[in-house]
């Protein structure tokens, strides 16, 4: 019996140190979530303003921009946004599976730009066509990262190598709810010409075409940036809840093991006692 109490003790200690790690990671993630959320709040007005301006411009002019052309979709581009690191519950695999389930039997119809090691490795292992992977930006994305990704995607679109640009990311709904999402950037449903009168006579300097030339890439870039920020917030938040669940589980196991340990200790004492009593009896 003495053997097994020692073993139980060792397990309790082992789980205790795991708990320490998960607890620390939980705390780290929860401060990061807070920071990310502040950033998220600040990014939303930018995106909304850009979108509003584009609609305003389109209301007033009628032009065919190469980035607004709609073609028959033969090849789609998917920009998958994922984390560099794991231990975030289903965060990474949700995104990967979303794409994999959709195109498992149709891999040739899509190309990928991956953000984060987790989706790069996943899709590489499954022989998808990866055009470019970005690593090391998903935790703290900068606007320049979004610009780079956007430029790459838009060049391909103009060249006609792809007929559609989609972004796959995890939308941050609340601290306990994240939604993997696919959003189509180009050709966009959001920037279609709306019915209705032009709001006013607007001066476009130097010309409506050039203003639009500037605005549409901005729209794509800011959408990608928004998605990157949403995803990084979701990542931290997913990690926080995964780690807090792990800490809870560790606590539960430790409680159970403590009970088992006490019971084992008790029965060892009882046995010893009865042995002594029996020995004393025998001496009489």
């Amino acid at each position: 019996m003495a053997q097994s109490t020692r073993e139980i003790k060792r397990r309790i200690k082992g789980i205790g140190s795991t708990r320490q790690i998960t607890k620390a990671m939980e705390l780290v993630s929860s401060t990061k979530v807070r920071k990310r959320r502040i950033k998220l709040e600040k990014t939303r007005p930018y995106y909304n303003t850009v979108l509003k301006s584009i609609k305003e411009v389109l209301k007033n002019v009628n032009i065919n921009h190469p980035l607004l052309q709609e073609r028959e979709v033969k090849k789609s581009l998917y920009i998958t946004i994922n984390a560099d690191r794991g231990l975030a519950g289903g965060y990474n695999s949700n995104i990967n599976r979303l794409i994999d389930n959709k195109f498992k039997n149709n891999k040739d119809s899509i190309s990928l730009i991956t953000v984060g090691t987790k989706s790069r490795d996943f899709f590489k292992g499954r022989n998808y066509n990866i055009l470019e992977s970005f690593v090391g930006i998903s935790e703290e994305p900068e606007f320049s990262d979004a610009r780079e990704i956007g430029k790459l995607a838009m060049d391909l679109y103009i060249k006609g190598e792809i007929d559609e640009i989609n972004v796959v990311f995890t939308e941050f709904v609340s601290t306990i709810s994240y939604k993997p999402q696919i959003i189509k950037l180009l050709p966009s449903e959001k920037i279609k010409k709306e019915e209705g009168k032009p709001s006013a006579i607007v001066d476009f300097e130097p010309s409506p075409e050039e203003v639009l030339e500037y605005l549409i890439p901005k729209y794509v870039e800011s959408s990608i940036y928004g998605a990157l920020i949403e995803a990084s917030t979701s990542e931290q938040s997913a990690r926080r809840s995964a780690m807090s669940a792990a800490t809870d589980n560790a606590n539960e196991i430790i409680d159970e093991l403590n009970m088992v340990y006490n019971r084992a200790r008790q029965s060892a004492i009882t046995m010893e006692l009865s042995e002594i009593v029996a020995g004393a009896e025998a001496l009489k």
Binding site: S199, A200, V202, E205
Partner: peptide, 19 residues
């Protein structure tokens, strides 16, 4: 500073969009 040059905007200006 617009791409066409400096530009002052006062109240009541005709609507304008410029990079």
């Amino acid at each position: 500073r617009g791409i066409e040059g400096d530009l002052a905007i006062l109240k009541g200006r005709t609507p304008i969009v410029t990079p």
